[in-house]
């Protein structure tokens, strides 16, 4: 993960990509949108703090748009 504020462009692209899929590993997001993984990680850090994206633990951790994936009991 890099340090410092995330690039707003990358944040936007992450949100756009996550709107198209159910959930994804952040590496797959980075590959799909053609950005560095560390920049995506920084973007996700801010997006989760802004309550737009959330982490989803399904034996490994994915990211998804907040509230998009329903798991049992959620």
């Amino acid at each position: 993960m890099g340090r410092g504020p995330a690039n707003p462009e990358v944040k936007k692209k992450v949100l756009e990509y996550l709107a198209k899929v159910e959930k994804a590993k952040s590496r797959d997001v980075a590959v799909a949108i053609g950005e560095k993984k560390s920049d995506v990680d920084d973007a996700v850090k801010e997006l989760t703090a802004e309550d737009l994206v959330e982490y989803l633990y399904i034996t490994t951790t994915y990211i998804c748009l907040k509230g998009k994936v329903k798991t049992p009991n959620s």
Binding site: T48, A49, D51, E54, Y55, L56, Y57, T61, V69, T71, P72, N73, S74
Partner: peptide, 18 residues
């Protein structure tokens, strides 16, 4: 017991297990 469901605190992706 069942697992599952997203539980957590704002800004973190872990530390709480549902």
């Amino acid at each position: 017991w069942k697992h599952g469901g997203i539980v957590g605190v704002r800004g973190y992706g872990g530390g709480v297990i549902g």
